[in-house]
């Protein structure tokens, strides 16, 4: 797991952003793209940079489902919750992976080695049912293949 960025690093990262210029999402996205998550410290730095309060920034962070406030797991299985995947057994795949990993949706192991995330359809439905492993599509799954994948992820960590 990467160590938490310092205030100085964060300040430099968001130095280009200005108050009242539509920069809340861009600055938060930049923090997350750089460090994988948005720490409490980052929220404070962004708030100061944008001349607003940490509460307001935290309000935005907590509103969106893809912002994280804790570091992402080493290996993440994101599950496609979309309709084509659902029609092809996607929900049974979710159930099976959750039981294999012993995690709820959007949960991660205590050591941050692996996690299970809710994903949205991005139109790669030719591969349904599918999951993304660290962003890469693993498609045309069967439930059995999904269980094996989850077991491998768990065993590797």
């Amino acid at each position: 797991m990467a160590s938490e960025p310092t205030v100085a690093e964060l300040r430099e990262l968001v130095a280009e952003f200005r108050p009242n210029a539509g920069h809340v999402l861009p600055s938060l996205n930049k923090v997350q793209e750089t460090y994988g998550y948005i720490s409490r410290r980052a929220i404070e730095v962004v708030a100061r940079q944008l001349n607003t309060t940490p509460a307001l920034i935290f309000g935005a962070v907590s509103y969106y489902s893809d912002f994280r406030t804790t570091p992402p797991p080493e290996t993440e299985i994101a599950w496609c919750s979309g309709p084509a995947c659902r029609l092809k057994g996607g929900d049974r795949i979710r159930e099976a992976i959750q039981h294999t990993l012993q995690l709820p949706l959007n949960g991660h192991s205590d050591d941050h080695e692996y996690g299970f995330h809710l994903g949205q359809c991005n139109g790669t439905c030719t591969e349904a049912p599918q999951v993304w492993v660290n962003g890469k599509v693993v498609g045309n799954l069967t439930v059995a293949k999904a269980i094996e994948l989850a077991r491998d992820v768990k065993a590797d960590s």
């Binding site: 999402l25 861009p26 307001l56 935005a60 509103y63």
Partner: peptide, 28 residues
Amino acid sequence: LYIIKGAGSYVCGEETGLINSIDGYRGM
């Protein structure tokens, strides 16, 4: 012209939710 990347919210596709989102508020 500017590009804004969202952060995962369906109602931000509703036009006023989208506007709030760019404005920097919760995208309600």
